[in-house]
Design a protein around this nucleic acid. Structure first.
Lengths: 138, 138
DNA sequence: CTATAATCCTATCGGTTTACTAGGTTTTAA
DNA sequence: TTAAAACCTAGTAAACCGATAGGATTATAG
């Protein structure tokens, strides 16, 4: 299950991407438009800034803006930052690998084999979709 | 993330499927062989029985056995019973659909569009893999 | 210079879920 | 009759989630 944090984060990025001009967008505006608790959204936007997706401007007229072009932001990157691993099991994760303590041999593990396939299928989809793709309406 | 429950459940089913004869397999045997807490495993096997994957025999010499052929058990079915929805968001779930309360229109939702693609990719993999496929070693 | 609007930061909190554990009851084969 | 197995109910510690609270900091406008 995707956490609300990730869901809201993606929606916020898409909202910002949809604006033609590169003027900073305020958290309050996104919050209202997308029906997201403002305080919660603030913390998410902050995280997206710290991880290099957004820039910010403080004070009156400030807000958040994209640092890269929407077409250059792959959804794999967004989800890894907000949600964590894309794999359903740590032992098949490329970026967050962890060995299972119960499993003596990954090569003969039935779950492992299956989850590698699921991971690759998800990576394919999330890797070929950019923020530009999902931000465009309909 | 896949819960331990689902992971253990799949491992147990694969273990039982690997046995040629159809004699009941005891929870204790699976528990030892797969390094799973016995009591926890018992509750999982019970659930698999109640949902129609396993039969059981009580008393001495009892245990659990497959009701269908391993080749007829799709991994979609197993995961839906143990884990719940395959979709990452309820609003794109086929079997556990729920509307998002924040989202006025699914057709223009960026997350929705993306998650449908992820769901379909996962369904494809999990639907074409049966218990027979994943139980066979290497 | 001051008021205001915005980001930024830290802490907390109630609720839910997870992964077990405990302690039995019931059934069956030997 | 004994032991081995499934079956059942309850509880529980820890983690995680989705916020909320309350401000500190910074920048702009007048």
């Amino acid at each position: 299950m995707l956490s609300k944090k990730t869901k809201y984060g993606i929606k916020a990025l898409a909202y910002i991407a949809r604006k033609k001009d590169r003027k900073p967008v305020q958290a309050s505006e996104i919050s209202e438009s997308e029906n997201i608790s403002q305080k919660f959204l603030e913390s998410i936007l902050l995280e997206l800034r710290k991880s290099g997706f957004l820039g910010s401007k403080k004070g009156k007229g400030g807000g958040y803006y994209l640092i890269k072009e929407p077409g250059e932001i792959r959804m794999t990157a967004v989800i890894r930052v907000l949600e964590g691993p894309i794999a359903m099991v740590p032992c098949v994760s490329l970026n967050y690998y962890e060995k299972c303590d119960d499993c003596p041999d990954e090569n003969t593990c039935s779950v492992h084999k299956l989850m590698i396939q699921v991971r690759d299928a998800s990576l394919q989809v999330l890797g070929e979709n950019t923020l530009e793709d999902i931000a465009s309406l309909q």
